[in-house]
């Protein structure tokens, strides 16, 4: 049995808007093992992004505990939490790709620079990662010069370059055609196997979800396993 990378227990979250209470998550439980890629499916507004933000320590739940590598980000100091996020987590989003002013190589170096890695080391690691996702030839280009699929490859490289233990991907194939999306997800799957990290993929596409080891659906605040 592989080890547990991420575990969430009894996560509840609700928002108050104009005296109205909107319950987004009700007692959500989730476990991700190393080398496992899971999919979370759900209608728009079902709270998938909210859940990912809570798992990544970017938002705090009303109650419940999230452990990443047995550590609880909620009890950490702000600086410590940032450092932890830098080391252990990788985020990939649909739209918020790369920083447009920097080259692809610099974008991939960014999390290493933030983590205090020397620039030469960072460059070497970033180049290795870019080679892994097949973007070596594009390293000097800016984001604007890349296609949607290439941008997501670069975003994957950036998320994985620090060797994180868990990757949180929010609809990373949302605006790609089906063939490119399949391609990206199989790359993610290979990388999950190679790095033995945990991977959480939020998607609307059932055929992409089918490529994952485990599927969950988020419906009226409850996370249910799809058999």
């Amino acid at each position: 049995m592989s080890s547990i990378i991420l575990s969430a227990a009894n996560i509840c979250k609700s928002y108050h808007e104009m005296n109205e209470k909107i319950t987004v998550l009700k007692e959500v439980n989730l476990t991700v093992h190393s080398g496992e890629m899971i999919a979370i499916i759900g209608a728009s507004g079902s709270g998938k992004s909210t859940l990912l933000h809570i798992l990544g320590g970017l938002a705090s739940p009303d109650s419940g505990v999230v452990l990443v590598e047995n550590q609880n980000m909620a009890t950490m100091q702000e600086r410590q939490r940032c450092h932890f996020r830098n080391r252990y987590l990788g985020f990939i989003y649909q739209f918020h790709h790369l920083l447009p002013e920097f080259s692809i190589l610099d974008n991939v170096c960014m999390p290493l620079w933030i983590g205090g890695v020397s620039s030469e080391h960072a460059k070497n690691q970033a180049l290795d990662m870019l080679e892994r996702v097949g973007l070596t030839a594009r390293r000097k280009h800016r984001m604007a010069e890349l296609s949607g699929g290439e941008r997501q490859r670069a975003a994957i490289a950036r998320a994985l370059v620090t060797g994180p233990r868990c990757i949180l991907a929010d609809e990373l194939t949302g605006n790609l055609d089906h063939a490119t999306a399949l391609n990206i997800v199989s790359l993610m799957k290979e990388l999950t196997r190679e790095t033995q990290a945990g991977m959480i993929l939020v998607t609307h596409d059932l055929s992409l979800a089918a490529m994952c080891h485990q599927r969950y659906t988020l419906r009226s605040g409850e996370l249910l396993i799809v058999e």
């Binding site: 970017l58 940032c82 932890f84 996020r85 830098n86 985020f91 989003y93 918020h96 960014m110 933030i114």
Partner: peptide, 16 residues
């Protein structure tokens, strides 16, 4: 704002 948010997800502190 969104670039700042992305930097935060990469682990940048508010001080940075």
């Amino acid at each position: 704002t969104s670039d700042i948010a992305i930097l935060r997800t990469l682990g940048a502190t508010s001080g940075m």
